Amino acid sequence: MALNTPQITPTKKITVRAIGEELPRGDYQRCPQCDMLFSLPEINSHQSAYCPRCQAKIRDGRDWSLTRLAAMAFTMLLLMPFAWGEPLLHIWLLGIRIDANVMQGIWQMTKQGDAITGSMVFFCVIGAPLILVTSIAYLWFGNRLGMNLRPVLLMLERLKEWVMLDIYLVGIGVASIKVQDYAHIQAGVGLFSFVALVILTTVTLSHLNVEELWERFYPQRPATRRDEKLRVCLGCHFTGYPDQRGRCPRCHIPLRLRRRHSLQKCWAALLASIVLLLPANLLPISIIYLNGGRQEDTILSGIMSLASSNIAVAGIVFIASILVPFTKVIVMFTLLLSIHFKCQQGLRTRILLLRMVTWIGRWSMLDLFVISLTMSLINRDQILAFTMGPAAFYFGAAVILTILAVEWLDSRLLWDAHESGNARFDD
């Protein structure tokens, strides 16, 4: 018995066209964080690309023209004298008006014999932002004059995390709450300039795509075929072959399989920071003279006294001054041990922890910024005066060393310790 099946006739004509040209192939790229070699397709503007294995951002879609970056830099340069030299806060102490600005706080630190601690604050609040705007201006002028731009481009990517104007702005709020127990506070004209400078700096850093600047100024022929001998440069993120001198053909720094002496430098910085954190938390970090009496505060006791007036601000200072430094030390110690013992479990967790400490590390400088600003506000000789204690130097040095330890660690070593050939990683 035959089955009668109805015929289905399409209502619209289906047209099949042959592909007349070869589909576009992607360029081969190595991930600078996990060293995976993959094919990167062509990316349009405002599109980002991520590593298929570790999800690290390979290409950032946010990109401004150099002219727009230069305009932002010149605007920031105009704001800087007002943000640093004009009063941020006014207080009335014992019937006398006192003005506080950024430069005055750094000068008070240096004047009291601790120039190293003052230079830490100076670099993060004044030096690094000033280098940022002058570097962008150098790129703008240098591109037109045919100057060598490689050193500036190499420095810009590392400079971003040292620009800490946003953290200093939080420190202004913390210092205001600490001082309000002794005097009446009012915002100064410099505060508005400083807030504007923070906003412009944040926007500029978020749109400063150094890798795209490398592509514009020093374009290189990408690798179009897969080759395990391809290496990625950690300076400019170019994937290719080393030249005859073993250097990256684009930025001219040595092109090595792994960062040289990464573990040794990381261990040295980490152990030194552990040693410095002990006096930083045991010795007094601030000293207040009130009517001839002397009151010393460690980091913890200062947080407890701050909690009596504002528990939320005390929580912020606790996280930045105690929780973050010790968390960074514990995480980095764990990561280094996992590399030495070739741990194969929990790779995803370790990668996330490394990215976390990379982002939060700079916030530990908050305590030094609060001390710097408070020193310029309260300084009335023996009637009422505020000065920093010996722990300030140890704390600042420990924070900087932990930042350097994270920067010096080559994250690809975590993958080397893991089993080879993993296309995915999980716990």
Rank of each mutant, 00 (worst) to 15 (best):
A2M: 04
A2S: 07
T5L: 07
I8S: 04
T9N: 09
T11M: 08
K12E: 06
K13L: 09
G20H: 06
G26Y: 06
G26C: 07
D27N: 10
R30V: 07
S39T: 08
N44H: 07
Q47M: 04
Q47I: 10
A49F: 06
C54W: 00
D60A: 04
D60L: 06
G61A: 09
D63I: 14
L66P: 06
R68P: 02
A70D: 04
M80Q: 04
A83D: 03
W84Y: 11
P87M: 06
L88I: 04
L89H: 06
H90C: 04
W92D: 02
I96F: 03
V102W: 04
G105P: 07
W107I: 08
I116R: 07
T117S: 06
V121L: 08
V121G: 08
G127S: 11
L130S: 14
V133I: 14
S135E: 01
A137R: 00
A137H: 12
Y138V: 09
G142E: 01
R144T: 10
L145S: 06
M147Q: 05
M147E: 01
R150K: 15
V152A: 08
V152S: 06
M155P: 04
M155A: 05
L156F: 15
E157Y: 11
R158F: 12
K160F: 10
E161A: 14
E161R: 04
W162S: 02
V163N: 05
V163D: 03
D166M: 14
D166C: 15
I167T: 03
Y168M: 13
V170I: 06
G171Y: 00
G173Q: 04
V174E: 00
A175N: 15
I177N: 04
I177G: 09
Y182M: 14
H184E: 04
G190E: 02
F192W: 13
V198R: 05
T201W: 04
S206Y: 15
E212W: 13
Y218E: 09
D227E: 14
E228Y: 11
L234T: 12
D243K: 10
R250A: 15
H252R: 09
R256L: 13
L257F: 14
R259D: 15
H261W: 06
H261F: 11
L263C: 13
L263T: 10
C266F: 05
L270H: 02
A272K: 00
I274G: 15
I274C: 13
L277N: 06
L277H: 01
L278W: 11
N281A: 11
N281S: 11
I285Y: 00
I285A: 01
I285Q: 01
I288A: 01
N291S: 15
R294Q: 06
D297F: 02
D297H: 06
T298C: 15
T298Y: 07
S301R: 08
G302A: 07
A314C: 12
I316L: 07
F318P: 00
I319V: 15
A320P: 01
S321L: 00
L323E: 02
V324N: 12
P325V: 03
F326T: 09
V329Y: 03
V329W: 10
M332E: 09
F333E: 08
F333R: 00
S338T: 10
Q345T: 13
L347Y: 13
L347G: 14
R348Q: 12
R350N: 11
I351G: 11
I351V: 10
L352D: 09
L354I: 10
M356W: 10
W359G: 05
I360P: 00
M365S: 04
D367H: 00
S372W: 06
I378D: 00
R380M: 01
R380C: 03
I383F: 11
G389D: 01
G389F: 01
A392V: 03
A398P: 04
V399P: 03
L414N: 07
G421T: 04
R424D: 09
R424P: 07
D426Q: 12
